[in-house]
């Protein structure tokens, strides 16, 4: 578990919210990481400290030996599902990653008969839970600390004198399909904005995909126009949001996508493919493209950036959408569900 990723932040806030209600709560992990060493315990220690009436909340994002282990235990089990990337998106790039996703799919099915409640962070993800056979499901968005304060992005500022600044934030992974953004940048620079640039912030999931993106950038003559920022601190990410003109999300599969929420919080326009949970999360605060065609994407981004009034409308819609999602209260809603289990007797308290 890491502080810097969405699931890690969500888990920490959920634990804090649970403790705030008067429950004892601990985070157990299969691998203790340096940055969260003070917040976590090795999962192998859990059995010795287990108490009757415990509720175990399993943060499900990838394959782990914890799934079959939990399947054999007796505690009330809540699965908090953050999505499994389809393995066929990974297989051309990294078979081991793909196999991990195949195993995760098997893990999910394994937990179906043992799970009292399965909570997805989006309605899109909930459909996966239902398809897998979970009988009782709910949706609560991630309670991740966005790491940004609500600020008014300068959507009306003139952009003359420099090219548009595109931004991609998220793990550099095949399912993010960043190559579509790069291709659209090439088209934009060739047709309408020769100074347009792209900043990609995120840790590579696999070197083969990262290497291919670097080579693609070079072959398209974009070496000076695309910056690979790698993993970045919260401050760096916020600075990137503030200095960019648009967040571009060309993912072929997204279970929630915290970066679009961060962009909404800061008032940065979002242009995204109409895929996965993105329409649900963005609502009318996003501008969607329904194909991977780089010309359509380039055209959509150029039109948006040239239309100050449209950006203002989107910024207002983003504020409404954030209010609806009410992420600061998400952890509380999650704990409400856990308390409901205790009260109903599903988890003897």
């Amino acid at each position: 578990m890491h502080r810097g990723d969405a699931v890690g932040r969500h888990t920490l806030r959920l634990r804090d919210a649970t403790r705030a209600r008067g429950f004892e709560s601990h985070i157990y992990v299969d691998v203790v990481e340096d940055d969260t060493r003070d917040e976590t315990l090795p999962v192998v220690h859990y059995a010795a400290s287990a108490q009757p009436g415990d509720v175990v909340v399993y943060q499900f994002a990838t394959a782990s030996f914890m799934a079959p282990w939990l399947a054999e235990r007796a505690e009330t089990l809540v699965v908090n599902y953050h999505n499994i990337t389809p393995p066929d998106l990974m297989a051309p790039w990294d078979n081991h990653l793909a196999l991990g996703q195949v195993r995760a799919q098997a893990d999910l099915r394994l937990l179906v008969p043992r799970t009292t409640l399965a909570i997805a962070d989006s309605a899109y993800n909930e459909t996966h839970l239902v398809a897998a056979g979970f009988a009782s499901t709910a949706v609560v968005p991630p309670s991740a600390d966005l790491g940004v304060d609500l600020v008014a992005h300068d959507e009306g500022a003139p952009r003359s004198g420099r090219g548009a600044r595109w931004l991609v934030v998220g793990r550099v992974s095949p399912n993010k399909a960043i190559q579509h953004t790069i291709a659209a940048l090439a088209v934009t620079r060739a047709h309408s904005d020769p100074e347009a640039t792209l900043l990609i912030i995120g840790k590579p999931a696999t070197s083969s995909y990262d290497d291919a993106l670097h080579r693609y950038v070079a072959e398209l003559g974009l070496t000076g126009a695309v910056t690979f920022g790698g993993h970045a601190s919260d401050d760096t990410v916020v600075a990137a949001y503030e200095s960019s003109d648009v967040l571009v999300v060309t993912s072929e599969h997204e279970g929630f996508c915290v970066p679009v929420v961060e962009a909404m919080a800061i008032g940065l326009p979002v242009v995204a493919f109409d895929q996965g949970a993105l329409p649900e999360v963005l609502g009318d605060a996003g501008t969607f493209v329904d194909s991977v065609d780089p010309y359509s994407l380039a055209s959509t981004i150029s039109a948006l950036l040239a239309d100050a009034s449209r950006k203002g409308v989107l910024s207002a819609a983003a504020r409404r959408r954030l209010s609806q999602l009410d992420l600061p209260a998400a952890a509380g809603r999650f704990v409400d569900l856990l308390e409901g289990l205790v009260a109903s007797g599903a988890a003897p308290g």
Partner: peptide, 9 residues
């Protein structure tokens, strides 16, 4: 920046 591109289609 010049005007938007004509989208495909």
């Amino acid at each position: 920046m010049s005007g938007p591109l004509s989208p495909v289609g």
